[in-house]
């Protein structure tokens, strides 16, 4: 039993080391300087990016949605999620699916096939993300470093979600507003083509996600989310984690597909669709 476990852990750590060691240490280095409150933009709203004249971006390498002490990843027991997997109100079919995904060592993980991932999974991107506030455009963008290197648009112009979403997407349709110093993001329109987290928790196209980002200081941001998905869960549930500021660093190019180019190796010949080129 242990050998395949180690093989999986080895494979995971290998994929995490596709950037140089030098970079990795740079990415995980955080400043210890404490500041009084968060930096702010000229209009007084919290600046979720670097203060002018400086660089920085966010990582939540330890981010988990849930804790499972029996999880296959023993080394991750100490992570900072706030609920146990037993407390996630999974419906019977999603519980069975989650267990299946874990029993099969997350072999069918879409993320490692370079599928974009939204919501909490974007915030816990292994190599981090940057929040780009464009107040004049009434938009906020999140630039993701890892995975498919996608950006996410958050409309801050007071619009509603579209009445009908013909084509659900990995990242969904996000609208945002400020509640005091907290950026609240409301997202619908998710496809079912990605997993909500590394543990394999499923969501459906009924997912309504609420996220709250609160930067309390230069270096600290709290991320809380509520998953309301009557297709997959018996009740809405909330979790979250802390996000850390990487001062004097900046987001960088990461192209998942660069060395992920064999459909056969990625999914096995037996699962190839005829439409794959």
């Amino acid at each position: 039993m242990l050998a395949p476990l180690l093989a999986v852990l080895g494979a995971c750590s290998q994929s995490d080391e596709s950037i140089t060691e030098q970079t990795k240490s740079a990415v995980t280095q955080t400043t210890t300087v404490t500041a009084d409150g968060p930096p702010r933009l000229e209009d007084g709203s919290v600046n979720l990016g670097p203060p002018p004249g400086s660089m920085g971006f966010w990582t939540a390498n330890n981010g988990r949605l849930v804790n499972d002490p029996n999880n296959y990843e023993a080394a991750r027991r100490e992570m900072n999620s706030r609920v146990n997997i037993e407390d996630a109100p999974l419906q019977p079919w999603t519980l069975a699916l989650t267990n299946y995904r874990q029993d099969t060592f997350i072999a069918s993980e879409p993320y490692t096939r370079c599928k974009p991932a939204g919501g909490p999974r974007q915030i816990m991107s292994p190599y981090g993300f940057e929040i780009v506030q464009m107040p004049e455009m009434e938009r906020v963008y999140i630039l993701t470093v890892s995975n498919a290197m996608s950006y996410r648009t958050i409309y801050m112009d007071g619009r509603e979600h579209p009445a009908e979403i013909l084509r659900p997407t990995y990242l969904g349709h996000s609208i945002g507003h400020w509640e005091g110093d907290t950026l609240v993001i409301d997202t619908v329109g998710f496809s079912e083509r990605s997993w909500t987290n590394r543990d394999g928790l499923p969501t459906t196209d009924k997912l309504h996600l609420t996220e709250r980002l609160t930067r309390s200081s230069l270096n600290d941001m709290d991320y809380t989310f509520t998953i309301d998905d009557p297709g997959a869960y018996t009740a809405p549930w909330t979790s979250g984690f802390g996000v850390e500021w990487n001062a004097d660093q900046e987001v960088f190019e990461y192209m998942c597909q660069e060395n992920n180019i064999s459909p056969a190796a990625m999914v096995g010949e037996g699962r190839l669709s005829i439409i794959v080129p």
Binding site: I19, T23, A148, L171, V251, F252
Partner: peptide, 27 residues
């Protein structure tokens, strides 16, 4: 994949962003 590209105007040398060194050329 709804990708993004950065262009810097801060007068830096063309030593590149993180990971963009000679051993890791970029798309």
């Amino acid at each position: 994949n709804s990708n993004w590209r950065l262009i810097h105007l801060d007068g830096r040398e063309q030593i590149g962003q993180v990971t963009g060194n000679d051993n890791n050329p970029l798309f």
